[in-house]
Design a protein around this nucleic acid. Sequence first.
DNA 1: TAGCGGTGTCATGGAACTGTCACAGACGAA
DNA 2: TTCGTCTGTGACAGTTCCATGACACCGCTA
Lengths: 231, 231
Amino acid sequence: MTAKRILIVEDEKAIRDMVAFGLRRAGYEVREAEDCRQARARIVDVRPDLMLVDWMLPDMSGLELTRSLKRAKDTEEIPVIMLTARAEEQDKVGGLEGGADDYITKPFSPRELLARIQAVLRRAAPAGAADVVEADGLKLDDSSHRVSAGEREIPLGPTEYRLLHFFMTHPERVFSRGQLLDRVWGGNTYVEERTVDVHIRRLRKALEPYQLERLVQTVRGAGYRFSTRDA
Amino acid sequence: MTAKRILIVEDEKAIRDMVAFGLRRAGYEVREAEDCRQARARIVDVRPDLMLVDWMLPDMSGLELTRSLKRAKDTEEIPVIMLTARAEEQDKVGGLEGGADDYITKPFSPRELLARIQAVLRRAAPAGAADVVEADGLKLDDSSHRVSAGEREIPLGPTEYRLLHFFMTHPERVFSRGQLLDRVWGGNTYVEERTVDVHIRRLRKALEPYQLERLVQTVRGAGYRFSTRDA
DNA sequence: TAGCGGTGTCATGGAACTGTCACAGACGAA
DNA sequence: TTCGTCTGTGACAGTTCCATGACACCGCTA
């Protein structure tokens, strides 16, 4: 449920910047690469959720890159959208045959790009992954976006919801404020660490009516932990 | 049952758009594919009730696609209507031999297409599977395309109808505006996400006289949900 | 050609949410 | 106990998000 990471592989800085700008605005985490060599290096540590690959690259065609990615076991799952200046039908086919999940022809509107990205990500999403997490009578159903204690629904703000969801899917583990900011807020947001405290407080407050606030525990000097065992 | 899903496999955007438009208007849920490769990918997650397949496709003839579908156990039940530009009798025969359930020659009128679709679906349907969804006194009969609360019929515009239908067949689940655009408007339309708000509003307004607008719920920061349980 | 239903976009206002701060309280080390 | 550090808590101002009404546009038809 964190922000999706997108890796752009495009040699023209102007286009890269424009696309990156639009995507960041839309809430994605964006990384950039100028050529296939850089792209390969980034893939390893960035682990993008989706890649935008230009057709024409200085060192190797984007098509080849895509093909090789789809061939490797650990990268075949990454959806790829090809960017191409050529409008010819055969190229489109080529892009898809190479394993790209979609293609888009320059010039394209930001809106169209976003729509395609959403479509591809949605398609790639593992449908029906365990959507319900439960702990000690507290139930979180991600598909309906509901949190409940027994029959009673617990209203939560967006951030508190994400926070609780993260905690419940990573129980019994301490996370520092920095880690929580990274994983719940998203990697490139700049927020005071103390802000986490406040949201923890708000989450606890929402859980109080059901005596469930004990599940959110403070580990002094280290951070916070979600645990059904008492502290 | 739910609204019938139709997958169009056609490389010419103009024709695809036209057909899709007509079908959506008629209340079908439409998905599109430009070639056989895409089509195969979509079949898996879309599970169409019927497919319209163009004769000529960039990567593989529609005939071959049809034949291979009919050969596979899990897709053989899907009825296929071939679209062909060639009027020759032999092609028609070829289409049917390949396993297509019907064929239609371009240019065709939307009405003719609809008639054939209905005919094929009727033939395929194990007669009597009532197309009715109901929730909390709100009834949607897809075969007659009517929505009612008790005895009173509720008038809805086409988009509101599709939206409600989608919601009622996917209750208790939150959909983002993007998802709704994708699944109710169709994957290839580019519309502002805020437009969804407006149609939600129109739908709610139509349901208001029956105090049913509470079924359409806002999940702040996430999207909308149809649910009989209160928010 | 004017009227009409249906659609998509925009501007606006208000409600909900967010991040920050200041201060109080709790805790641990000497 | 005492002090310094860390955490809990209430308040608040800025921002974001959503509901809503208005409006322009389109295709259709009388």
